[in-house]
Nucleic acid binder design. Structure first.
Lengths: 190, 190, 190, 190
DNA sequence: CACTAATCGAGACGGTACGTCGCGTCTTGTG
DNA sequence: CACAAGACGCGACGTACCGTCTCGATTAGTG
């Protein structure tokens, strides 16, 4: 009940708000993403935004990380190639200008909005599942030692990218991807 | 000129302010650290704080990360033991309740206050220098392969800890330290 | 056409809404009379109210001043007694707790809703007509001077009551009624 | 203590705010007097206004009724002339476009802000005092009967003007002043 | 007996204005 | 000079209420 009652929401507002957030993030960074600014840019008002998202960080999160990070992830080659794909995909997702601008603010707001925490790590759920399967196969095939854990591995990749984005932006080039991949492959050797 | 003129600053205010920030961080997190709250708790006023720090994040930074992270770092045993010390030291520094409460907010404010960036990575300068030396020695001794780089290694450690603090707090126990250390040692093998 | 088609209005809603407004006025004053509150208290919804009244003030007006003020007015005794009746009736109508709570807000909304103006002064039309007749008779009978005008007289009474309600509530007791009546009688003497 | 500490208020803001309110009242009536609109027009911000007045009605009150209403009241001629002065002065004060626009809204807000009540009736304190004295003298001189009361008299005048402003604006011309004065004089005859 | 048309509930809609909080700065008078 | 005290200008926040709209389900009279 209740799901179909009431006036339906104007679907254009949601899209306009998400686009406005992305534009503001790209232009002025997280500090420029104000509720009033988003509303003005989206051609709507603040209450309309608060009806759709509990707070600004939720809207920013949805704008900067619209879906699963593993969307285009391809696994199935040899382990090194697959790991390079995960590293590169994570790097690309978090180093995207919009995402990079949003990330520090979002990570800070996690303290205030616990539900954001679940939403953010959920973005990695698909990657984790597929990486976990791949790693099991690698263990079976003798490509990786038996103590290897996908959660540790993914945390290592994500941590490297996040700390790179936050502290040393611009250094996460393709050479870095290769170096990190090589390091991970070495660490997995039986 | 002018350094000795006029009324000298009350040295107690600086300490009281830093202690107030730590208390507020521990009690209410980053959101509770308000300039007015710090001033009130420290028994002083806002202008006295702004005379000492350019802005609130700088004060929080100094309160949460008072000095070099490598202060008590001991290196000189075998590589695995030394790496475990670095991992554990980094983990202990960033998982401290006060530091953990301050970290996300500070990382977000880096966007606004660029000088904070330099100040934060400076905290790791000592660790990096000593780790760099230790790694060179390891390479010479045949304990590590020749492409090993201290910056990549440290970024890996810091990233793992930061992402752990931000995303999966409470999971960075001693077993995790051992697992990460083992992984790093493996990745460094020639 | 169309007047009898369609589902007929539920007559209970109108009464429930008026009663809800009166209850809210008595309990929380004009500020408590919210469309949503009225709808909830009346067991109905906002659109049902807006189908019956163009805006909230109109509903409040009808709830607080349901009909002619002269409903129970008796004229026909000597002039002093008749004037006392008018004064007392006006006082009773406007000093009623519900009416007194509604009056200031309604007077303010007159600026926004011009049709309210006509509706409000219409409440005095019957009084005016009968007072006008009575005054003419008094002039004929030599009880009042020839320049006496019913509109000035009624405006004087209404004004005294309104300013009393708005500015000095609680002072319009029976002694005040007698004093005002005596004053008016004196002012009408030939 | 405390009265002289802190940064002194910019006196221009207070004047600019009052002028802005008067301009907005004259142009768009009470509904146009928005805190944001006043702030914008005065070249300041909302918090600066809330620092000076507890709420918008207080600011409107001060803007529309800056001081004593009896400022220019001259008494001392014969009773009819003096009463005419009071009636005309009250009429002029409340029929001024700015005051007339503010009055209904202010009277309504009295319910919400009790302190406004005292402030508003205070505006009549000087008139009341001087009218009281004048009426006593009139009683002594045999110009007025012994039961005449200044409070009743003033309430009658104020009420007539207020109800005129609220309900029949535009009819309070000079002829009305003469008629009301004559009525009052008659009602005071011994 | 189907059709038409207005009402019902429920509740979200777009929008205006509100009053508050925190920032970093400034202006005093006192030591 | 620094101090306490506190107001300053400013930007942003999240909420309350307005009057409207959409929806599916009723509920009569009409054809």
């Amino acid at each position: 009940m209740g799901t179909t009652t009431g006036r339906p929401r104007d679907p254009r507002i949601e899209q306009a708000a998400l686009a406005a957030v992305r534009a503001l993030l790209a232009e002025g960074g997280y500090a420029a993403v104000t509720v009033a600014a988003v509303a003005a840019r989206a051609g709507t008002t603040k209450p309309a935004l608060y009806r759709r998202w509990p707070a600004l960080p939720h809207l920013v999160h949805e704008a900067a990380f619209p879906g699963e990070l593993a969307a285009e992830l391809h696994l199935g080659d040899d382990l090194a190639t697959d790991l390079a794909g995960v590293v590169r995909g994570t790097r690309d997702a978090l180093c995207d200008p919009v995402a990079a601008a949003a990330l520090p603010g979002l990570l800070a707001e996690v303290q205030t909005w616990p539900d954001l925490h679940a939403a953010m790590i959920q973005r990695f759920a698909g990657v984790f599942r597929r990486l976990d399967e791949r790693l099991r196969a690698a263990v079976e095939a003798g490509e990786a030692h038996r103590d290897a854990r996908a959660d540790d591995l993914l945390r290592l990749i994500i941590g490297a990218v996040i700390s790179g984005v936050l502290l040393t932006p611009g250094q996460l080039d393709d050479a870095w991807v290769e170096r990190l991949t090589a390091t991970l492959v070495r660490s997995l050797r039986p």
